[in-house]
Design a protein around this nucleic acid. Structure first.
Length: 275
DNA sequence: AACACGTCCTGAGCGC
DNA sequence: TGCGCTCAGGACGTGT
């Protein structure tokens, strides 16, 4: 389940393999992922040099000298690898880019929740227009308790749903939403507009901390990018509440972690520690 | 306008 | 052993 730390890790792993390379060919092996695939024979991609590989929210962006970017969203099960052309194509390996160094960049996605698509950009390093509605990065200076406080004013939506909204802040998925609320001592189901400025300061800090720790863990686990698809690195997340329903709370020991469904997603919290 | 909910997809895990 | 059901969730479209 790729969230921001996983996308950051994959992007960092791809960067040295892709930057400066020229894309000589693109082949797709399924009609659609989340959206219909339209990558083959595109002059915006073919024979274009890759100028920059970076991340915005949960999107990996591969900028081309044609002032287009290849947007990659990993969905739920997306992964990438760099391999030799004679490497057998794995099941669910749906997109193959051929590079000028003789290697291939391949995208794999069993559940097809992801996206690989090409979009115009104003310049290298500028996000495409389709990402205009995204809120700040959690690591941006503009993202803090005061920002959350202003955005949450009058909002009745639950605080967990609120921080998972990419228009508010990007990259906080279901797992890290539960984890950061646990660390901040805030119940996931209280109205966002009811949380005090002080507690939102704490929450903003914990969102940053939990994401930073996960990036660090993922970055150190993925060593051999050519053979590791990424999934191994994602198990190194140190989860304190997610998936621990029925177990004793790691902080207070007296509480038992509860699970409930919130806007279709599993939420976990300690009734003793979170209010 | 604000918020909730259905939809897409496949494999893992479970019960019988 | 094997089948069939349920669950997992990011983002977007639609419904209330």
């Amino acid at each position: 389940m790729p969230e921001l730390p996983e996308v950051e890790t994959v992007t960092n792993a791809l960067r040295p393999h892709l930057t400066g390379r020229t894309i000589l060919g693109v082949k797709t092996y399924t009609a659609k992922l989340r959206y219909p695939l339209n990558l083959e024979g595109r002059p915006e991609i073919l024979n274009q040099r890759i100028t920059k590989v970076w991340r915005r929210g949960r999107y990996c962006l591969v900028d081309l000298e044609s002032n287009h970017t290849i947007l990659v969203h990993l969905g739920m099960t997306g992964s990438c690898r760099i391999v030799a052309p004679d490497e057998p194509r794995l099941k669910h390996e749906h997109v193959v880019f051929s590079l000028d160094n003789g290697l291939q960049w391949r995208y794999k996605d069993a559940r097809k929740f992801g996206d690989v698509s090409v979009h115009p950009i104003e310049a290298t390093g500028k996000a495409p227009a389709c990402l205009d509605s995204l809120g700040p990065e959690p690591f941006d200076e503009s993202f803090d308790g005061n920002f959350l406080f202003l955005a949450a004013k009058g909002k009745k939506t639950a605080i967990k749903t609120f921080i998972m909204n990419n228009a508010i802040v990007t990259g906080v998925g279901n797992i890290y939403a539960s984890e950061s609320l646990f660390r901040a001592g805030i119940r996931p189901d209280i109205a966002a507009g009811q949380v005090s400025r002080e507690r939102l300061d704490c929450l903003a800090q914990h969102i940053r901390d939990v994401l930073a720790a996960a990036i660090k863990a993922g970055g150190t686990t993925i060593i051999d990018f050519e053979t590791v698809t990424g999934e191994e690195g994602w198990f190194s997340r140190e989860l304190q509440v997610y998936g621990r329903d029925g177990e004793a709370c790691l902080r207070c020991a007296a509480g038992v972690i509860r699970k409930f469904v919130q806007t279709g997603r599993s939420s976990y919290y300690c009734p003793n520690c979170q209010s």
